[in-house]
Design a protein around this nucleic acid. Sequence first.
DNA 1: AATCAGTACTATGCAATACAAAGTACTGGA
DNA 2: TCCAGTACTTTGTATTGCATAGTACTGATT
Lengths: 113, 113
Amino acid sequence: MSTQVNLENTQQQMRKGILEFVILSVLARNDAYTSDIIAELKKAQLIVVEGTLYPLLTRLKNGGLLTYRWEESTQGPPRKYYALTEEGRNFLVALKSTWEELTIAVDHISKNN
Amino acid sequence: MSTQVNLENTQQQMRKGILEFVILSVLARNDAYTSDIIAELKKAQLIVVEGTLYPLLTRLKNGGLLTYRWEESTQGPPRKYYALTEEGRNFLVALKSTWEELTIAVDHISKNN
DNA sequence: AATCAGTACTATGCAATACAAAGTACTGGA
DNA sequence: TCCAGTACTTTGTATTGCATAGTACTGATT
């Protein structure tokens, strides 16, 4: 068994590509800052780390799907609260559709064995 | 909207990571050579191209999850038929479980919006 | 006032993989 | 012999999750 093909790696590779969808989904309900988002994902058994999340949020913000505002915190430094733009909401609708098509396709194939 | 965040790219990124699972699933039913695999996936609305498939099959073979045999063809050059190893079957079971956990997590998050 | 722990954000290098593209090789038919 | 169709191999590129290193802010403690 080579280092490349092992369960952990494959699980990680499976996470690639879906985090945009997942993050946008979390923010569709409520504005949130990073620790909120991480906690929300963790509740759903999806572990995402800050080294992933920050660049992702920045990318989505730069792409026009998110906006943010600073908010003072009584528990530490200021927090950056992210929110979906209208464009972000539209994009999320398309992503949800894509996800559904993908899972149907995969389930169809994997159920055949 | 930057080049990085567009639907096509995101759809492609969503495919990353699941193709191992999908290919092993196809081969769990029957030995197959590449065009068979591509056709099977296409039937399920999953388009995969040869530049992706060949290196992937090689990787899985090198990792001990697949074996292959050559078979003469009356329609052209010989074909390389791949089959799951015992190890491949075990790995597939784990992948299926992982996929289910992932979809449950994602659906849970996306259904909340 | 200075220090520290906890909290929050930023940046970067690495590993892995889907894909486009280029190329090699085999077979039967023209 | 040449060609089209078929099958396989290789490689470079773009993208992204993660580990890691670092910066910055705040309130509490010394």
